[in-house]
Design a binder for these strands. Structure first.
Lengths: 243, 243
DNA sequence: CGAAATTTTGAACCGTTTCAACGGACGTGG
DNA sequence: CCACGTCCGTTGAAACGGTTCAAAATTTCG
């Protein structure tokens, strides 16, 4: 998943000389706690989140990459499409995650809000200028980018070599790791989004979850939530034990 | 593919204050032409490649990430394994590509030579020191990392949503794009490696190539080479036209 | 030249997809 | 408050693409 979420609450850093945000008018850089270190801390200020409606398109694959976006609340899906409509979701983004760090001329993927989302937008040019002034920021972004790459490689292993059960179990473990220590899991995304993330169909995801529930490994209190009843068994499923 | 190859020939940059390379003893940083720009050019010098035998392990998944490697000749496979031996190759690296840029404590993948390879190794600590001295280098590495991420996302789309024919056709187009303008394609990797890269089996790769050859789309002059006879038809196959 | 490794080819099998229908949750309007 | 339609998720049965198993053909290398 691109820009894995940090545990810290996102904060916004007002930066002099930065172009005003197109949405809230403030001159700031919203970063998560992990980024707000060293020389950056002197810039720390208050957040000015911008609300975006559910299913809003944050960026479209192929459009000129002139904006940098920082998610401050909610969940975002990052996806790529084939000509005939087949979709691969390459990652989910949450509060603190960045979007548009890559250096190309155009966005290599689309990003859409899953439910209502708060974001901060920055003009790419302003962001580049800031990088020149703050070398530490570039290092932080490189770390971030490295994390994304590592996540992408793990996901390639999942998509290329894991069975449906292993994919769903790995996914549940990932999400449960992200969403704190409790065994309760929030699933902001639909079955279709899970399927497009795992390279499966809706039906296979549904069947696999049902089978896990029947086996007592998980429970499904609601459509958008799950609970890990047997973490050991779930981990076993993720790493390829018998069904 | 991590660190996609640049078209320029790799050069080596001697850097004062850098720890001696463990293999050749020289104090240098080997970079491809794309990196040797601006302030870095003053450091340009001669290459001191280190030869490595075929199938040599350059780094092993899980080992402490204390080295940075720059490929100066040959091809390298970057892969991840599941407990039962299933393998996913997440990328192939060629001259000019970097290995070990990611910032983690341990390597998230293994890297092995495909045939004889020349590399330059650097101690991670020295590399970090150099980054502090040369902010421009960090920017270049960030660009590089972004390219890797974009390639990884394209590959996720391939692994998650493309058919076998689309995968093989996309692969051939990628390689042909990389290896110059001619329709002749060098394939340093085996069928097994192609299969593990594309998330298929050896048999499916072989059958698909044979079918393309029979259809006159490609020819197969040798086991490790191919030729695109009908680029238009190959592109059509890659984007999902009828078989 | 001969043995081992790799590639190709064939046939049966199987996990996932596809196609189809059902069920439940939610929101709207009567 | 309930009827109704829509959307989403679940469940079932059949079909298919790719895998698995097996063996022949080709290449590589000592």
């Amino acid at each position: 998943m691109p820009s894995s979420a940090a545990s810290a609450v996102p904060v916004c850093l007002p930066v002099e000389g930065l172009d005003p945000c197109g949405h809230c008018g403030a001159r700031h850089l919203s970063v998560c706690g992990a980024l707000a270190e060293e020389g950056l801390r002197r810039l720390a200020g208050l957040a000015h989140p911008v609300e975006v409606a559910a299913d809003a398109v944050l960026m479209r694959e192929g459009d000129p990459a002139d904006q940098l976006i920082n998610i401050t609340a909610g969940a975002v899906r990052v996806s790529k499409l084939l000509a005939d409509g087949r979709r691969q979701i390459v990652g989910f983004l949450f509060a603190g995650d960045f979007l548009g760090l890559a250096s190309g001329e155009t966005y290599p993927f689309s990003a859409e809000a899953i439910g209502p989302v708060s974001v901060c937008r920055f003009r790419r040019a302003a962001y580049r200028g800031l990088l020149a002034e703050l070398p530490a920021l570039e290092g932080a972004l490189l770390d971030r980018s490295s994390d994304d790459l590592r996540a992408a490689q793990n996901h390639m292993l999942l998509l290329g070599r894991k069975t449906a059960t292993e994919r769903v179990a790995s996914f549940l473990l990932d999400v449960s790791r992200r969403s704190g220590e409790g065994s309760a899991i929030e699933l902001p995304m639909s079955r279709a989004e899970i399927a497009d993330y795992l390279g499966l169909t809706i039906e296979t995801v549904s069947r696999t979850l049902t089978r896990m529930k029947t086996a007592g490994v998980i429970s499904l209190p609601g459509l958008r939530s799950a609970r890990v009843e047997r973490p050991d068994r779930l981990a076993a499923l993720a790493s390829g034990e018998a069904p």
